[in-house]
Nucleic acid binder design. Structure first.
Length: 790
RNA sequence: GCCGAAGUGGCGGAAUUGGCAGACGCAAGGGACUUAAAAUCCCUCGGGAGCAAUCCCGUACCGGUUCGAGUCCGGUCUUCGGCACCA
């Protein structure tokens, strides 16, 4: 007989909410703490899809187990509720984006509750709530006061389609991540945060978080992009101008045949000769119009223009022509020395523009390509005969002694572009006074004004139209507010601290509580945040740690990325492909417990895997089987059953360990094995029945709560029971069957027991395979040795 | 191109430190119950040979180490994810 899961689920949802079962007492320090955090979702209009819950279910299982193991667990949820779709909706409908957002949050909340997550909803965060963004603004002000926030002209990624600037991590293949609009370089005055000042700390900090995926740490290392090399100064011929180049191959200085500046380099205007001026101007303006997409498409076709001027190679006084080319980026010094013999880009450029190639390292075939490997140096004066590393050291030393260059470390990590020309974000609490002074508005929170029209006009941010809000008198002086807002990644760079003390209006969070609850013990969310959110969060935490506000230098102890859930056809789920599964439909048909079991049983959570509606049947059968064993069959008795003893202890051991390791598919497999075995028995000892339902409860909380009440104790909740224990010895076998192999072929099988001596095992083996084989050497694997010794 | 992860039946996937490959589940086939169906229960289920006990092959491909390799080493191919002119 099936059971009415709808009734049961509703009953327990109401009970959990009414009794505040999952509310965390933050001041209870008597128990060890466990902070389990999900990356909070953006409340989109579409609602949750079945991919979201994979991470949420995993974290919920761990949270529920930890509670039963005696931890004080913080398991909160919130919404990253500022963002573009709400703003676009507002423009279209004229409604306030807040109402759209609130409506979506309601849908998300209903969906999350329907899945039985044990969140402490009293600590919910909405990043668009002024009581929250008060402190986002406050952190910005601290950064400003400490000199980490600057307002200055910068070449930025301007997206005409969205009417705003974008950060590097918001651009995919030269187009905006949202909307797919083209992006171009523009010089604009923008707010930036000096994250490069933290490059070294963010890099070395990665060594202190062993429980992060390797791929994520590597991704951040590459994004930070540390390279060690040298800066070398070149004089411009017949002038007082000099420029510096950054190189990781100072050993090839004697092979430099020209230099290239990036088109935006300051010196270009100053040293271009009259004859070349037209060609240079044309090239520079053509580059400015190119989108990132167009620039990267050019890959092998290296364009450039000679600017007419020459510079002097400091090591041999060679006269080198100066070119500009857009393959040189505004990275490092924005200028490179070109060594076509030993750098492939320079090689291609020199071929395209007929520039000379001078070999200074032996090896490779310069007819085909540049040689970048190690080798003996030639044509290099004092470096002749040395290999790459020796030559680098010697030449840098030589340059340093003459003041012509020095050792230098460079990072690819750029400043964090912190302003967006959007309405639906945190206002930046800065006022530009009429007298030219820039001051902070310390009267926080600075509330985002309600407007009649959210459309941007004349390329200015929408807030520019909020005349009343914009014009202020501060310290008796008139000024105008900053009308850009903060990027979406601002709130999520620190929200994990706010969950610890979400209603505090005096400060970001109580230091005593932060000290007890930080860091996050288990953080689950998508791998797409590797170089965006996760790096910004580490940056703000590190900054706040240095200020004594955050008690830890790394905010997330263990990090797990759920794999992508693909559609039934193996493709990415998307509306346009029509393969999206709505969790509401699955819950209506099968119930939340079955959805949870199925999503966890599909495979390892970190792997991408396709949805398969047919496979849900297996999870449904398992849940039904559990129900009928506990409720319909009459086999739970205060009695013993030796047949189940070992399996029970094994199951407790394996499930506990697997939950801890987030290996839910194998935990479920073990529980299925146990339930299948129970089904074959006529007596299900009460002790085992009680223990098993506790194991099941983090995974399938509704049915477990109901069974607990009906079968074990109507007056208590399963959530308050302690986690089952197991007997280590009983969880192990006393007797196992092992194969006897000769030349790696299995010849016989024998049974061996714990405590059996080595000679007896050998005799059995000899006997089993026959006397002729007996004098051959017999290996006993360690596993067996350990087994009989036990 | 660089970095990272992975490749096991018809399918999703198991397999502590190298030690019985394919746990568990889905699908499929057969059977029981039923007037019938659903549900449930039982059996079979990597490929090949054989009446059979049994034997041979098999974890992307090629080679190596080892008594023994899905697992370790070297090379190749493929897929996915990230970065991409970073000097």
């Amino acid at each position: 007989m099936d059971f009415n899961f709808k009734e049961i689920e509703q009953k327990w949802r109401e009970r959990w909410e009414k009794d505040e079962v999952y509310k965390t007492d933050m001041h209870d320090f008597s128990k060890p703490k466990f902070y389990a955090l999900d990356m909070i979702p953006y409340p989109s209009g579409e609602g949750l899809h079945v991919g979201h819950p994979i991470g949420y279910i995993s974290n919920d299982i761990v949270s529920r187990m930890k509670r039963m193991q005696g931890y004080n667990v913080l398991h909160p949820m919130g919404f990253d509720s500022f963002g573009l779709p709400a703003e676009q909706y507002a423009i279209k409908t004229g409604n306030h984006p807040g109402s759209f957002t609130d409506h979506n949050i309601e849908t998300f909340t209903r969906q999350l509750k329907s899945m039985g997550f044990s969140y402490d909803w009293s600590k919910e965060i909405r990043t668009h709530d002024p009581r929250f963004y008060h402190w986002t603004q406050w952190i910005f002000e601290q950064l400003y006061k400490d000199g980490y926030a600057e307002h200055k002209p910068k070449y930025v990624n301007w997206c005409e389609g969205l009417g705003t600037v974008l950060a590097n991590d918001e651009i995919v293949d030269g187009k905006s991540e949202r909307g797919g609009f083209p992006v171009e370089k523009r010089l604009m005055k923008q707010w930036t945060l000096n994250i490069p000042a933290y490059a070294e700390k963010l890099l070395s900090g990665l060594d202190n978080i062993p429980e992060w995926p390797n791929s994520t740490k590597e991704g951040q290392r590459n994004w930070i992009g540390k390279s060690i090399g040298a800066e070398v100064e070149f004089k411009v011929e017949n002038s007082d101008y000099t420029f510096r180049v950054f190189t990781t191959r100072a050993d090839t200085l004697f092979g430099a045949t020209y230099c290239v500046l990036c088109p935006e380099h300051d010196l270009v205007k100053k040293i271009t000769t009259l004859e070349q001026k037209n060609a240079v101007d044309e090239y520079v303006s053509a580059c400015a119009k190119k989108t990132d997409m167009e620039r990267s498409e050019l890959n092998d076709n290296k364009t450039g223009v000679f600017i007419g001027a020459y510079c002097i190679n400091p090591v041999n006084n060679a006269r080198l022509p100066i070119w500009i080319g857009d393959y040189v980026l505004m990275y490092g010094t924005g200028a490179v020395m070109a060594v076509p013999a030993h750098d492939q880009r320079d090689y291609l450029f020199s071929k395209a523009h007929n520039l000379p190639i001078i070999r200074v390292v032996e090896g490779g075939d310069l007819e085909k390509e540049a040689y970048t490997g190690d080798g003996k140096h030639i044509n290099s004066g004092i470096l002749d005969g040395l290999n790459n590393d020796e030559a680098k050291e010697k030449i840098i030393d030589w340059l340093q002694k003459r003041g012509l260059g020095c050792k230098k470390v460079n990072y690819k990590l750029r400043e964090w572009l912190f302003s967006r020309q959007r309405y639906w974000g945190e206002p930046i609490p800065v006022v530009f006074l009429d007298d030219g002074e820039t001051v902070l508005d310390e009267n926080l929170p600075l509330i985002l004004p309600v407007m009649d029209d959210y459309k941007a006009k004349n390329g200015e941010p929408p807030l520019n139209n909020a005349t009343e809000w914009k014009n202020v008198v501060i310290n008796g002086k008139h000024g105008v507010r900053e009308t850009s807002t903060m990027p979406g990644t601002a709130a999520t760079a620190w929200y994990y601290m706010r969950f610890i003390d979400p209603h505090n209006d005096e400060m970001l969070a109580d230091p005593e509580l932060l000290k007890h609850w930080m860091p996050v013990d288990l953080y689950i969310g998508g791998a797409e945040h590797t170089v965006g959110h996760l790096l910004y969060a580490r940056f703000w935490n590190q900054y706040l740690f240095d200020k004594g506000i955050s008690p830890v230098n790394e905010p997330f102890k263990k990090l797990v990325h759920p794999g992508m859930l693909l559609g039934e056809n193996g493709e990415k789920m998307s509306k346009s492909k029509g393969n999206v599964i709505n969790p509401d439909d699955v819950i209506a048909q099968y119930g939340a417990d079955v959805l949870r079991v199925y999503e966890m049983f599909m495979g390892p959570i970190t792997e991408a895997k396709p949805w398969n509606t047919q496979n849900i049947e297996g999870s449904k059968r398992f849940i039904n089987r559990v129900w009928s064993i506990y409720i319909n069959d009459n086999k739970i008795q205060d009695a013993e059953n030796k047949n189940l003893e070992k399996l029970y202890h094994k199951t407790v051991a394996k499930v506990t360990q697997d939950y801890e390791n987030l290996s839910f598919n194998t935990a479920i497999s073990q529980m299925m094995i146990f339930i299948n075995a129970v089904q074959k028995e006529s007596v299900f000892p009460r002790e085992y029945a009680c223990g098993f339902i506790k194991l099941l409860s983090p995974l399938a909380p509704f049915i477990s709560a109901e069974i607990w009440q009906q079968v074990f104790d109507a007056n208590s909740l399963i959530d308050y029971q302690s986690w089952p224990t197991f007997d280590v010895d009983l969880a192990k076998d006393d007797e196992i069957e092992i194969p006897v192999q000769i030349n790696s072929k299995i010849k016989a099988r024998i049974m061996i027991s714990v405590g059996e001596n080595r000679e007896s095992v050998l005799n059995k083996a000899r006997e089993a395979v026959g006397i002729n084989e007996a004098d051959k050497e017999i290996y006993i694997e360690n596993k067996i040795v350990n087994f009989i010794k036990r």
